[in-house]
Amino acid sequence: MNIFRLAGDMTHLFSVLVLLLKIHTIKSCAGVSLKTQELYALVFAARYLDIFTNYISLYNTVMKLIFLGSSFSIVWYMRYHKIVRRSYDKDQDTFRHYFLILPCLLLALLINEKFTFKEVMWTFSLYLEAVAILPQLVLLQRTRNIDNLTGQYVFLLGAYRALYILNWVYRYFTEPHFVHWITWVSGLVQTLLYADFFYYYFQSWKNNQKLHLPA
């Protein structure tokens, strides 16, 4: 494991912690897209099918459990928690996330490294993760006052993706036969989706203003 990969995993972990902190202590999920959170829960469920059959390291298993547990509990909080669900901007969060799932599944059936159930599901999770942030970005654009925690959550998620790309560059030069087109292309697409957000995030940070995305 290299430093980029570790830093990427840690930013990912922090992003989840920031979101849980907001939901758990402030009891609010204002500005958070349930659609995106449901997609992430599906992403992790599809990707970590091998959690008990393919042991890599204790670190990997524990992290997988954390991502699975946190994504499903966030969805639960937003849907069913008596107080939290009241702050959910249902009328603003209108992205048709089901329309993302089917194309990703079809693409995974067509383009994969091996046509087995686990491999197709794994590829599906990569494609779906690439676009899972879209409902959240649309919701951010519609939110007048993006609170700091929500802004930081999306920023940390974007940073995690950028660090993973550095990790692949590093692995490409240090490990033999490290060529994984499917992972790289979907990862690159995913990171590019954050470009616009990053621009406005740094602008607001530089000018010391509240984050606001133009429609």
């Binding site: 995993d9 990912h12 990997n60 997988k64 794994w122 993973y164 990790n167 994984h180 992972t183």
Partner: peptide, 10 residues
């Protein structure tokens, strides 16, 4: 092995 290489990521 090669197959494990990419599946060792999260």
């Amino acid at each position: 092995p090669l197959e494990q290489q990419i599946h060792d990521e999260l």
